[in-house]
Design a protein around this nucleic acid. Structure first.
Lengths: 167, 167
DNA sequence: TTGTCTGCAAACACTTTGCACTTTT
DNA sequence: AAAAGTGCAAAGTGTTTGCAGACAA
């Protein structure tokens, strides 16, 4: 975690997430606390989508994060989104986070049965968003495309067991 | 609301929303109650996006819906989504509904400052979703594309007053 | 030392549920 | 009469906040 230049996916970045977060905090007169470090590091070490409760539970399983509190986790997640480290999306009623920093822009396929998320990217979508925003005099800040449906696994098990779809 | 063939936007449909809902309810052995009728009619009479609390408040202002209860509103909205009359999306922490029945597929520009929603449609987006789903062996059921940013109004007022962006 | 952060408990907003009573069928 | 629906109040979720003590700068 001490490297000055590392790569994730196909994009190379200059600072580790931890460093970038520190930079962000300092720029705002916020403090680099043990808790915030533990949280960024933990989040940076795993690359999947997660929600606040999951993160909290995971943290409490580690020695460093054993005493993590819910409010701090929520507060820090918000800061990480502000810092551009994470992206937040709302699925099935709760906030789901994913890495943003150093990751290429992408969208999602969402299985409404098992809640699985599959990533994909499309330059066309990007282009369409820009064009539409311009047409409406919008300053675009990002977009979110979620194609929902049934994944291959759930499609086959669908006939056997009954599931509750949650959007 | 008694016509058998009316048009909304550019699409003509055979049944009024009320009729379609009745059909849906009957098909499921559910009952056509006064409350459900009042709610469908009210929703059908307004074409904007709304949330459950707004609808409840609006209903209570009408003679017919004066005694509307929160649970019934929530329950009926869910049924209307199931019936294909409404679409639901989650923005800034709460569920927002819009008409689905008889309306052409479209996506949204979302102003993160004033929460305004602007609709647009794009056949290309449609095509991309289908293609991507196929690639991942997904059975697509729909998609949601939200381009977020600042609308023209908020862009100009942004420098004067401070706003809180909510995603 | 100064001002931010943390953790706790309590508050929150939105939504759902248990239940006795009312209504549709 | 039987079954489903309603409204009330209460319980849930997921998330946020007030505050006293803890801690980085």
């Amino acid at each position: 975690m001490a490297s000055v230049d590392f790569s994730l996916g196909s994009v190379a970045v200059a600072l580790t997430p931890r460093e970038r977060f520190a930079e962000f905090l300092q720029a705002r007169g916020k403090r680099i606390t043990r808790q915030r470090q533990v949280i960024v590091d933990h989040v940076a070490s795993r690359h999947e989508h997660f929600d606040a409760e999951q993160l909290l539970a995971d943290l409490r399983r580690t020695p460093a994060g054993a005493g993590a509190s819910r409010p701090t986790v929520y507060r820090t997640l918000t800061e990480m989104v502000d810092a551009g480290l994470l992206k937040k999306m709302v699925l099935a009623g709760r906030s789901v986070y994913e890495h943003d920093y150093g990751y290429p822009q992408h969208d999602h396929l969402h299985c409404t049965s098992c809640q699985k998320l599959i990533e994909f990217s499309s330059a066309e979508v990007e282009a369409i968003c820009g064009a539409v925003a311009a047409q409406h005099k919008f300053v675009p800040r990002g977009h979110r495309l979620i194609v929902s449906g049934l994944c291959a696994d759930c499609r086959s098990s669908r006939s056997r067991s009954r599931h509750q779809d949650r959007v």
